[in-house]
Design a protein around this nucleic acid. Structure first.
Ligand code: NAD
Ligand code: NAD
Lengths: 215, 215
DNA sequence: CCGCCCTTGTGAAAGGTTTCACAAACCAAG
DNA sequence: CTTGGTTTGTGAAACCTTTCACAAGGGCGG
């Protein structure tokens, strides 16, 4: 049980949890590994293996208790609490995030927002006062934000990430298309839209090459 | 040479290309696999293996010609052309995308935008007229968009994706937090911010558990 | 209590990706 | 032309993830 868990396992656990919450809302009491597998495109064996890293949650012959597994997965993923986010860069993507109800609904609350633009500092965006960068360190210490969000231009993203880390966040979500290197064990996830589009570009070109010539 | 190429390889090729373009701009002529590896956190062997799936691009003893490899990777990834995107859902995230210069700069042009909101239809966002959904099929046929972008509420995302597919797009980029299943070989990439945050939540909780108890 | 059906949990096998390590190739200098 | 220093391209090994397949356990009807 429980050694190092792969990213793909954790990803799938989140997807299982999503489905379980839907089932819970629908009043379903038990679910089997194969039902759980379907929406994420996994196999039933994979579901069972993923869960087995953390313990034994099912009843043989019956499946898993929906309520029980929801609680267990929330515990495993750290979602039985809520997390506070500090946003840096209230531009196009930063504003979209501030207005996104889907975050708070899942326990991720943006509690502070920062920018360098004098025209924005002091104004309110979705109920949150935009603060100057100079307040970043004390404000994060004060409000206890655990996750920093980088939504600044690419050129300053690395510096902003380093500053967030110094301010004491435990993890960083980055929207700039640049690979930020983790230091001090603070994990960083980058949402890189251009990379996704280039992946699609590859697949479409590949399909064209296969169909187009010979094949 | 060239069988089925893994997603992670394609991902890294994009990152190599990014660095190569920087080097090109800086006037560098040759680059070694180890220099190329650094920014993406790969190893030099990995760089060479990744490239070897597609051919032999380097000169032993010298490294890779920056210009030559840029051309080769653009060809492989399908980036020696530009791609047309059709956006469905001009809300918070859709508007952010429309205003994002980083897409056009890398050869991804949003050429059509659609919504169901009567108040938005007919108005212009970043120079593009917002069209009613009823025009989706003919408009995509006419302008020849290859990639559909789903930026609608989650509840309608699957239906919108299906409609885009019927309209003839070759790939879909989805921002709704839902796993859409590929049909007809049209690849789908989902950008799921909540999933990324939950991954970070897991890592932070895990770190806490390791530090907190015993360890 | 027994026997049947169902589903889990899990070693073992298969499949895939990354790293290792070295011969082959190239350049420059003498 | 030969030698030495450097870096590629690539099989083989190591490592990691997924799938297979089945014994073990649980519920239920009789
Ligand atoms: N807009 C999008 O849809 C989109 C999509 C994908 C990725 N991105 C990436 O997200 C990042 C932000 O993009 P955007 O479109 O929101 O840009 P934007 O220009 O609209 O916003 C950037 C904000 O960051 C602020 N800023 C600049 N330097 C700063 C600093 N040193 N410290 C703090 N704040 C600073 C600016 O004042 C501005 O408010 C970019 O890296 C971009 O590549 C954007
Ligand atoms: N806002 C964010 O920062 C953010 C972040 C991550 C994910 N998302 C996801 O992106 C999606 C859009 O989010 P948003 O915040 O932009 O929402 P939004 O409500 O601001 O925008 C949604 C848009 O879609 C349009 N729409 C609704 N039904 C439609 C249909 N059937 N066909 C075409 N258009 C339709 C609406 O009129 C609206 O303009 C959601 O699935 C959300 O979960 C948003």
């Amino acid at each position: 049980m429980s050694g190092r868990i792969s990213d793909s396992t954790v990803r799938r656990l989140s997807l299982y949890l999503r489905m379980l919450r839907d089932l819970e809302r629908a009043g379903v009491e038990f679910v089997s590994s194969s039902q759980l597998a379907e929406p994420s495109g996994a196999t039933s064996a994979q579901v069972r293996k993923d869960l087995s890293h953390f313990g034994s949650f099912g009843k043989r012959g019956r499946g898993y208790s929906v309520d029980g597994l929801v609680r267990a997965l929330e515990e495993i993923l750290g979602l039985s609490r809520s997390w506070r986010l500090a946003l840096v860069g209230v531009g196009k993507i930063g504003s979209a995030l501030l207005g996104y109800g889907g975050l708070a609904a899942r326990g991720f609350d943006v509690v502070a927002a920062f920018d360098v633009d004098e025209a924005k500092i002091g104004t309110r965006a979705h109920g949150l006062r935009i603060r100057p960068m100079r307040e970043l360190r004390p404000a994060i210490a004060e409000c206890g934000a655990e996750i920093g969000v980088v939504a600044t231009p690419t050129e300053v993203a690395a510096e902003v990430a380093a500053e967030l880390e110094r301010a004491g966040v435990g993890a960083i979500l980055n929207f700039a298309p640049i690979e930020l290197s983790e230091v001090n064990g603070v994990p960083i996830r980058t949402v890189d839209i251009v990379l996704e589009l280039e992946g699609l570009s590859y697949l479409m070109s590949e399909a064209g090459r296969r169909t187009g010539s010979d094949g």
